[in-house]
Amino acid sequence: MKHEIIISGFGGQGVLSMGKILAYAGLMEGKEVSWMPAYGPEQRGGTANVTVIVSDDPISSPILSSYDTAIVLNQPSLDKFQAKVKPEGDLIFDCFNIIERPTRTDITSYEMTAMETAAEQNMMKCFNMFVLGGLLKLHPIVSVENVMKALRKTLPERHHNLLPMNEQAILKGMEIIRAI
C-alpha cells in the first residue's frame, strides 16, 4: 500500500497539522511516512500545502508530480491541484470556499460541508479533523484509534481536554463526505 496525498488550503486552516497527524498515525501503524510542507511565504499567510505519503515500503521522493488524492480547501488550491490528481484518483474539496467546482471526469470528486458543519457545531478549531474524517472514510489509510494516539502525542498536554472534540469531528467528517 502506498498513498500519495496533497493537502492544500489557506494558512490557518490546519493544513500542515492535519498532514502531521496523518503522518504520525501512519508511523504508529509501523508504516513509512513523509511530510513535506511548502514552508515559504505560504506559511506566513496565503496558501499552505503539504505532501504526505504513507506507505508499506520505503519512500523515494517526498516531492511528487501527481497525487492519489488531493484535498483542496480553497479555490486557488483546487485550480492548482485538480490537474495533478492521477487518473482514477480522488479530489476532496470543502464547499465553503469553492465557486468553480472540479471539472475533470477521469477522477472522482467528493464534496464536504466541513466548514459549515464545524461552524454550526461551534467546533471551528477542529475544522481540519472533519476533513481528515472525510479522507479516512474514503481511504482508511490509518485507523481512527491511531489518529487519536497521534493527536495525544502532537497536541501539547494543556490541550488534551480537546481530544474528545477532535474525535467527534473525525467521526462527523466521515458522515459528511459524498461523491459528486
Binding site: L27, E32, V33, W35, M36, P37, Y39, I63
Partner: peptide
Amino acid sequence: VIGQMMEK
C-alpha cells in the same frame, strides 16, 4: 527539503 520535511 531535507531540513523541513518530516520522516520517521
